[in-house]
Write a protein that binds this DNA or RNA. Structure first.
Lengths: 249, 249
DNA sequence: GCAAAAACAGCAAAAACTTGCAAGATTTCG
DNA sequence: CGAAATCTTGCAAGTTTTTGCTGTTTTTGC
C-alpha cells in the first residue's frame, strides 16, 4: 500500500468521523502504529488535520456555535466582520445567516447605514435591532434549540419569494474541492435557499475552517462570489481557492 | 476517548445549560472526577468557560431582558407567571405574545413539559429555547425595534392558518367597558389574529393595568376566556370584570 | 464551628510519543 | 544494468503525557 493511499484514507476517516484513533488506523491499514503516527504528523504539518494525543481530529471539530470566549478566534472574527461591513452600501437589501461571525457584522454596521436585512437567526436579528436605520425582517419557522436558527419549509418558502442584493453566510466549512459544507441537514436547506434568493453570495470564514469538510454540502465554490477571511489575500493557504472566480477580501 | 472529545462535550454542555457539575460530567464521560477537573481547569485557562466550585459556568451568559428594576412589579409578574404555567399541560400547542410577563412564563415552564409554542416575540422565543422539550416556532415578519416583536401581513397570514389550544397575551391594558387595548396599531393586528387562531384566550396583566385604556382596541372582554392577575379572585378591584364569563386565576 | 463536599498536590502505572537505527524497497544516474 | 543514494517502514529504548488514586487542605452549608 502506498503512502498516499494511506494518507487519503486517514483524511477520509477524519472528515467522516471528525476524529480518529491512531490504533484504529494502524489496525485498518495493517501498518505499524509508527507509520500511522508519521503520516498523521505530516498531514498535521500540511494543515489537513489536527494531530492530538492518541489520534487526530478535523479542524471544524473544536468550534462552536456560541461565542466561546476564545479571544484569539474572536479578534479574527472581528477583523472579518470589519471587512464585510465595508462591502455594504446604503439602501441595500441583504440576507444574513447566523453564527458568531455574522453577529460581529451585525454589531459593526454603522449607525448611519440604511439597510433592509432578512435573517433566520435570533441572535443576528437581536443585534440588528440595535440599529435605528436597519429594517429587520425575521424569516420565521421552527427554531433549532442550539443554533437559535429558524429552519423548515416556511423559511425556504419565504426565501423563494425574495431577490436580494447580497447574501452573507457565516460559520461555513470550506474546501476548494467539496465546496461549502455543514453538519445539519435542515440548515443547508435554508442556506441553499438563501443563495438562490441573492444576486451575490458572500462567505465569511475564519482560516481555521478553510480546508475542512462536514457531512452535507450547501454549494460548490463556483456559487460563491466573495470570500472574506482574516488572512491576507496573498496567503498561500488560500491558493486552492484561486481557481474559482472569487473576490478575496 | 480522546481528550479533545471530552473537552468538546464539556463545552457543549456548558453552552447548553450555562452550568455543569463536575460529578455529572465524570458520570457521563466515564472518567474520574480528577480528569474532569483537569479538563475544566484547562478550558478555564483557555478562557473557554468559567470554573467555579463544584462545576463550571459559561461566562458571556446574562439575562436577555433588561430588568426594569422594579422589584414589586417583578414579583407580581412572577406570581402571575406561576399561575399561568399551571394552566398548561403536556402536548398542547399554544401561542404566546411578548412582554415581560410572558417572558416570566417562558422562563418558568417546567423542564419536563412538552409543548409546541408559536410566538412573534424575539425575547420569548429566546427564553423558550432554553427548554429541551418545547418546540418553538417563530412567526416571522418585520420586527419592531423597541418591542422586538414581529408584525405585519406575514405574521397575520401565518396565524390565519393555525388553530391552537390556547393563546397567552401579555402586557395588555384592560378595562371592563373598553376591553383590551394597545398603543400600537400594528401590534393589535397581530394580537387579533392570535385570538382568532386560538380556542382559548388567556390574558396576563398586573393589577396596575386593570381599568386602563389605550388608543387602539384589540378585542372586547367577551373574547377573553381567562384572566390572570396577581390579585386574589375575590379582590373587589376585579368586580367590574365579573359580568363577563371569565375564569379569574 | 463542624461535618461534608470539593479542590489540590504528589505519586505511580499505563498509554502515547520521540528518537535512533537497521532492513528492505525505490529511485537516480553513470 | 547495477551500485549508490534516498526513502519507507518497523522495532526498541528512553521520555513525556495522561489518568486514577491517596492523603491533605480548602470551601461550603448548616
Amino acid at each position: 500500500m502506498l503512502k498516499e493511499e494511506r494518507q487519503k484514507y486517514i483524511l477520509d476517516q477524519v472528515h467522516l468521523h471528525h476524529r480518529v484513533l491512531l490504533n484504529d488506523l494502524s489496525d485498518a491499514l495493517n501498518v505499524s502504529i509508527d507509520t500511522v503516527r508519521r503520516d498523521v504528523k505530516e498531514l498535521d504539518q500540511e494543515k489537513k488535520l489536527k494531530k492530538v494525543h492518541g489520534g487526530a481530529t478535523s479542524f471544524g471539530f473544536m468550534t462552536f456555535t456560541k461565542d466561546d470566549g476564545n479571544i484569539y478566534l474572536k479578534s479574527k472574527k472581528i477583523s472579518i466582520a470589519e471587512k464585510t461591513v465595508s462591502l455594504l452600501s446604503d439602501g441595500q437589501v441583504i440576507l444574513m445567516s447566523g453564527g458568531t461571525t455574522n453577529m460581529e457584522v451585525a454589531k459593526l454596521i454603522p449607525k448611519k447605514l440604511v439597510l433592509t436585512v432578512f435573517t433566520p437567526s435570533l441572535h443576528v436579528a437581536m443585534a440588528l435591532l440595535e440599529h435605528e436605520n436597519v429594517e429587520v425582517i425575521f424569516l420565521g419557522g421552527k427554531l433549532l434549540h442550539d443554533a437559535k436558527f429558524a429552519v423548515g419549509g416556511t423559511v425556504v418558502n419565504a426565501l423563494s419569494q425574495l431577490r436580494v442584493d447580497m447574501c452573507i453566510l457565516g460559520t461555513g466549512y470550506l474546501d476548494a474541492k467539496f465546496g461549502l459544507t455543514e453538519f445539519d441537514w435542515e440548515v443547508i436547506q435554508v442556506k441553499q435557499a438563501m443563495i438562490r434568493a441573492a444576486k451575490k453570495t458572500v462567505i465569511l470564514t475564519v482560516s481555521d475552517k478553510l480546508h475542512s469538510v462536514q457531512k452535507y454540502k450547501t454549494c460548490d465554490m463556483t456559487a460563491v462570489h466573495t470570500l472574506v477571511t482574516e488572512l491576507d489575500p496573498s496567503d498561500p493557504l488560500l491558493d486552492t481557492f484561486r481557481p474559482f472566480e472569487l473576490v478575496l477580501v
